[in-house]
Design a protein around this nucleic acid. Structure first.
Lengths: 345, 345
DNA sequence: ATGAAAGCGCTAACAC
DNA sequence: GTGTTAGCGCTTTCAT
């Protein structure tokens, strides 16, 4: 006995069925013209297109996703969009996502590992096609979650013990060498350094090591009193306090290298409040060249990271991975640039 | 004749079927414990939970969405995340989304109406449960798309001719009054103004009108030479050029009110390059209190908008709408604050 | 070239 | 309290 399907007339959005009925074809045919697959008779195609137009039909991507196992969306996990280095990265990511018809799902973690894992899980449940991940360093538990999730992923400026993942970075080691030698060439010898948490295995740690090595390479003794590790190093206040601490130990300082621009700005304020001048007494170099850096007074000398490109390149890599294309380089190294402004003499 | 379903053993992620088999129950029962509906025998529940645990099962939200017509994601349409006022708003939106188990899909439009409409459509196809929309002003074509999409929506700082939509704003009119009278109280009479496109029906236009009215109310003649409308007014360069234009017409200026902080910073640089001082010669007030405003030299006097709150309040309203709860206020007005710093004397 | 029908993974109405 | 089953809107074999 044949089953009769009663076609509902609810107030739902128009579906492929409606189009099929309107065009007097089967839903399969509608699907074919929708996806431009197989050969469809020109006449039929025209009918379908007209029906689509008439009904203002738009396919339901959720339904499609369930079938195809692809959602055309990628997740992007970052510490905090209101930290000025991320918006540019995200914008780069969104722009190329857009080119390939992807949308992005934004996730702020505040560097909380639990949140990172939870987001990874949710993104998996929502079947994103891939994820871009940024954090301080890649925790073991996070790595495990990523691996078992089977999602394509690419890391941005996020280092872990192992490097099983594709990633995009800048050469932090060389950047630090360049800054320190730039300072040394100015005649600076007592070069202070303000960094983030010492234990993390991240860009900041790499710079610190490089700072130390470059000092030694140039015959300048490393002085612990000149170095301070902030717990977070996100806000200028952290830099302010850090520099005050350093200055309370010694005022014999020629230069200061900071892990980021916010820290540099705070530190410069501390230097001023201690009656010293930038750059006359102390040269200061930041990192990132975030917004603000060129508006600060004095305008900040800093390392400019290609933030937008980091986002766009990472996304291109990710989309290749999603499409099972070969991604040549495991670690994509982008160029940085030392931007000289007024905080160094 | 009974149809025998052969259970596949592909490498797909584990599904509700796998759990059902493992726990020796029907998929309906698994669904019940998953969603905590109906009454399930404690024993059975335990079995199911164990199976879920054992298989590390996570429900496929896409499948669920297809059935429930809810995706637990909301779209957020903004001009450009790399413009410093948006990250905070987005963060506010994400934080409350998160509380209610929503994720956000971020869309940058660069104020391009076509892009806005396209995003609205895609968000519809992807069945987001609602959208937060920010733009310069609400175009008719956009309004139409929103209306016909049937998606719950709330606007942030986006005014249109009609106000059919829920929105959150600050009292731009009163803010402009406050700034202008603050300046007048300092003895300033020749008060310049740099704004965005004159034709748009937006916050900026409201401030401009209010600026003009307040001047007149206080018996100060409005002088066209003191006003400049930027095409975009996004970057400090725009402010730099705008101020140069004004200064080329007259140098008899006591104060300057700018549509945003970036413009103010650029304008201040132009003032300096014209041999004048801020605030000694010209008082300058910005708008938004974006990052950088307090780092600029001189530190900027400006109107602080509660950006984070705008995002979070809008999202709360949106989620209420999604849940068909009554949303008392159509237009939610948030408080602003005049922050006095060093760019005014 | 086109249609019928299975099925993606889930929820919910209905039956027992 | 639990199972069976229809169906969400689409893609995709398999027939014809």
């Amino acid at each position: 006995m044949k089953k009769i399907t009663v076609i509902g007339v609810g107030n739902m959005a128009t579906s492929i069925k409606d189009v099929a009925r309107e065009a007097n074809v089967s839903i399969a045919t509608v699907s074919r013209v929708l996806n431009n697959v197989d050969v469809v008779n020109e006449e039929t195609k025209k009918k379908v297109l007209e029906a689509i137009e008439k009904l203002d039909y738009r396919p339901n991507i959720i339904a499609r996703s369930l079938k195809t196992q692809k959602t055309k969306t990628i997740g992007i996990i970052i510490p905090d969009i209101s930290n000025p280095i991320y918006p540019e990265i995200v914008r780069g990511a969104e722009d190329v996502s857009n080119i390939y018809q992807y949308n992005i799902m934004l996730c702020n973690t505040d560097l909380d590992t639990e949140k990172e894992i939870e987001y990874l899980r949710v993104l998996g449940e929502k079947m994103v096609d891939g994820v871009i991940y940024m954090s301080n360093s890649l925790e073991k538990s996070v790595m495990k979650t990523i691996s078992s999730s089977n999602m394509p992923i690419v890391l941005i400026e996020t280092n872990g013990r192992e490097t099983d993942f594709h990633s995009v970075v800048i050469d932090n080691k060389q950047a630090a060498v360049e800054v320190v030698e730039y300072l040394i060439n100015k005649g600076d010898k007592r070069i202070a350094y303000i960094s983030t948490d010492k234990k993390a295995i991240n860009a900041s740690a790499i710079r610190y090591k490089s700072y130390k090595a470059t000092l030694e390479k140039n015959g300048i003794p490393y002085d612990e009193d000149l170095v301070f590790f902030c717990k977070y190093a996100l806000k200028s206040e952290d830099g302010y306090e850090a520099m005050n601490t350093i200055l309370s130990k010694t005022k014999d300082i020629d230069a200061l290298f900071c892990v980021n621009d916010e820290i540099a700005m705070g530190a410069i304020n501390a230097i001023r409040d201690n009656g010293l001048r930038v750059p006359e007494d102390i040269d200061v170099v930041g990192f990132n060249d975030t917004h603000g850096a060129e508006f600060f007074y004095p305008r900040l000398t800093t390392i400019a990271q290609p933030l937008y490109d980091m986002g766009s390149v990472a996304t291109r890599m990710l989309i290749k991975k999603i499409n099972n294309e070969e991604v040549e380089t495991k670690v994509f190294v982008l160029p940085y640039e030392l931007v000289e402004r007024d905080s160094t003499k």
